[in-house]
């Protein structure tokens, strides 16, 4: 169970949350190849995808304890609510804007990095999974206008950010376990859900949804993280090999997520799901509305100062 340090060989258990075929998981296998070659076998990555070692909250806790060494997971907020800050609604409206916000050098990135550091975890990079939209079984009222009642109830993850955003857009919300969401939409317990990219909507929900609205209000992201203790045991050269591999994949992820969003919206349309388009000006309006309405509600959670500083960085 503990990494064997014999003969300078270090085996790191790497936990992922997505299915093996998903590009985030594939990136782990690419990193594994590069790292094992680049370190000439001094570092071995043992990859466990698809929540095999537990869900992200559990994996995160274990990375802190050192019983799992590394992961590509959602950053859970159970220890520090600031780790949710990357999920602020309309942190940026475009993929490029999002990449800037979630890459080293930005204010948001530094908040997340510091918060993880205090918890004994090192952030290697943030991985871009994609913009989140709303998938629905029936057409809502005034879909592209924020604030007006949509006359539809959607499933939200148990995160205040998601719930507030969905409600400010004009949806009623329901808390339903993710595993039940498909059948809940299908049978009509709820009308749809927020929290997945066009890809997830295509892969898992295309048979139950009839409409997809790419609100781009939230951005799905995961972090490459590693326990600080184990990181410090790795020699600087080997650290560099890991960092280079991770940087390459992280940079690629944002561009991939843009292309993927387009691709899967097309696929959704082919599968008979109507895409309700949102124009650039409508998107700007939505973003402004949410930043003016939802953000103030989140001040008590993240601090007014932080939000002001993020707003500044947006200009």
């Amino acid at each position: 169970a503990t990494p064997s340090l014999a003969k300078d060989k270090l085996t790191l258990k790497v936990a992922g949350i997505s299915a093996p075929e998903y590009r985030g998981t594939k990136s782990l296998y690419t990193i594994k190849d590069i790292v094992e070659k680049g370190t000439e076998g001094r570092i071995i990555l043992d990859i466990f995808p698809a929540n095999q070692l537990g869900d992200y909250t559990q994996v995160f806790e274990e990375i802190r304890r050192g019983t799992i060494e590394m992961g590509l997971i959602f950053l859970p907020s159970q220890f520090d609510v600031m780790l949710e800050v990357g999920s602020l609604p309309f942190l940026a409206e475009t993929g490029e804007g999002m990449q800037e916000q979630l890459s080293p050098g930005s204010y948001v990135y530094s908040i997340i990095e510091d918060s993880l550091d205090k918890l004994g975890v090192r952030l290697l990079r943030i991985y871009g999974d994609g913009f989140v939209g709303v998938g629905l079984a029936r057409k809502p009222k005034d879909p592209v206008k924020a604030g007006t009642p949509k006359d539809a109830m959607i499933r939200v993850a148990p995160l205040a950010v998601y719930k507030e955003t969905a409600e400010d857009l004009g949806f009623r919300t329901a808390s339903i376990p993710y595993a039940d969401t498909y059948s809940a939409i299908q049978t009509g317990v709820c009308d749809g859900w927020i929290g997945g990219s066009s890809q997830i909507n295509y892969l898992s929900f295309r048979d139950v949804i009839k409409y997809y609205i790419p609100y781009n209000c939230l951005f799905d992201q995961t972090g490459y993280i590693i326990g600080k203790d184990i990181w410090n045991k790795i020699s600087p050269e080997d650290q560099k090999v890991i960092l280079d591999a991770v940087n390459e994949q992280a940079d690629k992820s944002f561009a991939d997520s843009n292309a993927e969003d387009v691709e899967y919206q097309e696929k959704l349309a082919e599968a008979g799901v109507e895409i309700i388009p949102i124009s650039g000006s409508e998107m700007a309006e939505l973003a402004e509305y949410i930043r003016n309405t939802t953000w103030p509600k989140l001040e008590s959670t993240y601090g007014k100062e932080t939000l002001d500083k993020i707003k500044e960085s947006l200009q």
Binding site: T57, S77, Q78, F79, L119, A157, P158, L159, A160, K163
Partner: peptide, 13 residues
């Protein structure tokens, strides 16, 4: 010691 909380209502675990 570390006071992890639930994500919605932030109830201590």
């Amino acid at each position: 010691t570390w006071m992890p909380r639930t994500t919605g209502l932030r109830i201590p675990i």
